[in-house]
């Protein structure tokens, strides 16, 4: 008796999908732990660079490095947009993009032109769709944030800033708050705001510099900015895994519910078919 063959096929197909989503959920869970560790591992460097930089800035007030230049009128701004390479991570990228487009609109309303630097496949696709001017990009970043891949795109932006083509640089990424919560975050990278340069030392002393203070400052400023972007990327990756884990858990649960409902429909149809057949036999017997 072939009742509800279509329903059975459907159940089987949902079961297969559920297997995939469950596997993805488990993969994300294990990756998430690693990405979170990496996120934390990047912190000591950023803090150290900031301390040294603050001290250097205090000891040599007038360094005049192009990356430290402050511009009164902003004509052109650069935005670094960080996203994941792959999808299936819930609203993670969409939320970041919303934040990004809001900033783009705000700047465009002030007649500011915009250059975008994309980190991640999804960011590149979205900005190209929106016909924004993409000046640099890095995609296929993998599960481990690699400094090597960031240097290129960042050099492009920082050079433009140093040459006066850009007057401000922002970064948009998905900040990791906890497993259940990721928040799209926007930060101003350049010009460096005073809170980047917190000075803790009150007594005055100075380093010996080799070769000289300005070139060391340039080195530090670059490394500092890179480490901020690296940190953002690491956080975005942790967010991605967390978001994917939650999204896949929801998908697995939904598949379970769908299977339950389909089973119910299938059983009812089977029961109905049996009843009909029985009543037909009984009616037939009565007629004889």
């Amino acid at each position: 008796m072939a009742v509800g063959k279509e329903i059975l096929t459907k159940i089987r197909s949902v079961q297969n999908t559920q297997k995939i989503t469950r596997a993805m959920q488990m993969v994300s869970t294990s990756k998430m732990r690693k990405t979170q560790e990496r996120m934390r591992a990047a912190r000591p460097y950023a803090e150290k660079v900031r301390t040294v930089m603050a001290h250097l800035a205090q000891a040599n007030a007038d360094l005049g490095h192009p990356l430290l230049a402050r511009r009164d009128v902003v004509k052109r701004a650069g935005i670094i947009l960080v996203s994941s390479d792959k999808g299936l991570c819930g609203g993670l990228n969409v939320n970041s993009f919303k934040r990004f487009y809001a900033k783009v609109k705000e700047l465009q309303d002030q007649n500011v032109e915009i250059d975008v630097c994309c980190l991640g496949q999804k960011a590149l696709a979205a900005t190209q769709r929106a016909r924004l001017n993409v000046v640099a990009s890095a995609v296929q970043l993998g599960d481990i944030p690699k400094m090597d891949k960031l240097i290129g795109p960042l050099t492009v932006l920082f050079k433009q800033y140093a040459e006066g083509e850009l007057d401000a640089v922002y970064i948009v990424y998905s900040g990791f708050i906890n497993t259940m919560k990721q928040e799209p975050t926007i930060e101003q990278l350049l010009p460096l705001t005073p809170h980047h340069m917190v000075v803790e030392h009150s007594h005055s002393w100075d380093y010996l510099y080799e070769p000289d203070a300005p070139s060391l400052m340039e080195f530090l400023v670059k490394r500092y900015l890179e480490s901020v972007v690296y940190q953002a990327l690491a956080e975005n990756m942790a967010s991605e895994q967390a978001a994917r884990m939650v999204a896949m858990k929801a998908a697995t649960d939904n598949a379970g519910n769908t299977i339950k409902q389909l089973r119910l429909v299938y059983n009812k149809a089977r029961q109905a078919a049996i009843t009909t057949e029985l009543s037909e036999i009984v009616a037939g017997a009565a007629a004889v």
Binding site: C117, L124, A136, S137, A138, I151, G152, P153, T155
Partner: peptide, 18 residues
């Protein structure tokens, strides 16, 4: 090297090639 990397990033953006 940084220059070369920068050029590569620009090119990647222009062509979306890897």
């Amino acid at each position: 090297l940084d220059e070369a990397r920068a050029n590569e990033a620009k090119r990647a953006a222009e062509e979306s090639l890897q």
